[in-house]
């Protein structure tokens, strides 16, 4: 296999809030993973798991409590000149979770979308700027004549599409998409996901796709990381994590996904995961690569079981 380029490396990231106070929160606790150029890495977890915090740390909205984040091999905290920082901010964009909070209500849609175009001087003149905005609006499923309206005139789904257009406007290389489609209708979700994939193929984009909709995450992602209480539980390719989940939390999460198939739903048996019961035994646990490419959070004692299960699954693939 060709050595692929790591566009993003996260090393032992810790992101604590209210450090040293009684209400200290360890939102992200010693998380490490890499994202390769051109891939989609899905980060899956429930609310409060720290998945959004990881995304925000990666784009440097927070200063990490500990650990390093390397983008293109460079530590994002050591970008010194304004030019370097501006370039970092153009190359990495974010599609936000809450379409109501992420658009300025006083700005027209075209100015929201073109804000990045203006900052990075990507338009030749006003006509070009309007043309780019019109194109972006159409790309995300809105009409060009929506450009002179204000955010309050749009539904939540439409606003989210404006947010996507804004992220795409500066031709980024890396996009953090935080629950980008959960506000959209089913038929529109598919359009947006196809759009994200087309753009990825066209511009060799890399995505960090943060979501709780597991069917869509599996569909869009090359690899998936499962996060729970600020810790990564498991990382594997999308196919493997669904076909052969190792960690009980991953199994529990998968068993809860509603599937549009009444027969399946009637026979579904949800598995419940109790973190206190599973991790309450004081054993030291960390993320270990049990077989190449498949990581799971495990103690020394649990490791042989996981390894056996992973190897058994890999053996079935060879046949």
């Amino acid at each position: 296999m060709v050595e692929r380029k790591k566009i993003l490396q996260i090393k032992n990231l810790k992101q604590y809030f209210n450090v040293g106070k009684p209400d200290e929160v360890k939102a992200v606790d010693d998380v490490s993973f890499d994202i390769y150029e051109g891939e989609t890495f899905g980060l899956v977890g429930e609310s409060g798991s720290g998945k959004t915090t990881v995304g925000r740390s990666v784009i440097h909205l927070y200063n990490p409590t500990a650990g390093e984040i390397l983008f293109n091999g460079r530590n994002i905290r050591q970008l010194k000149s304004a030019k370097e920082q501006l370039e970092f901010r153009r190359e990495m964009q974010m599609i936000f979770q809450d379409p109501y909070a992420s658009l300025n209500p006083r700005m027209k849609v075209k100015d929201i979308i073109a804000e990045g175009i203006d900052i990075h001087h990507l338009a030749k003149n006003d006509q070009d700027r309007d043309a780019q905005v019109a194109h972006l609006l159409e790309v995300v499923g809105l009409n060009a004549d929506h450009s002179t309206r204000y955010p309050y005139e749009f539904s939540g789904g439409q606003r989210q599409r404006i947010g996507i257009a804004r992220a795409l406007a500066v031709q980024p290389r890396f996009i953090i998409a935080d629950e980008p489609i959960s506000a959209l209708d089913v038929s529109i979700q598919a359009q947006v996901v196809n759009l994200l994939q087309d753009l990825q193929a066209e511009h060799n984009l890399t995505y960090l796709f943060i979501a709780h909709d597991l069917s869509m995450v599996k569909y869009i992602s090359d690899r998936i990381g499962v996060i729970h209480y600020g810790r990564l539980m498991e990382i594997a390719t999308a196919d493997e994590i669904y076909a052969n989940p190792l960690h009980p939390y991953t199994e529990s999460l998968l068993s809860a996904v509603p599937v549009p198939d009444p027969q399946y739903e009637r026979n579904r048996q949800p598995i419940f995961y109790d973190a206190a019961a599973h991790e309450g035994d004081e054993q030291v646990r960390q993320l270990v690569e049990v077989v190449p490419g498949h990581f799971v959070r495990t103690s020394e004692a649990e490791l042989p079981n996981y390894r056996q299960k992973a190897e058994a699954y890999r053996a079935t693939l060879v046949k």
């Binding site: 979700q189 598919a190 069917s215 569909y219 549009p260």
Partner: peptide
Amino acid sequence: WGLINSMPTLDTKADRLYAIPGT
């Protein structure tokens, strides 16, 4: 048909999701 078709299931292998065109 379009609604059901545009939802990926955990078994979906297709390269592209079906999307109902237009709005």
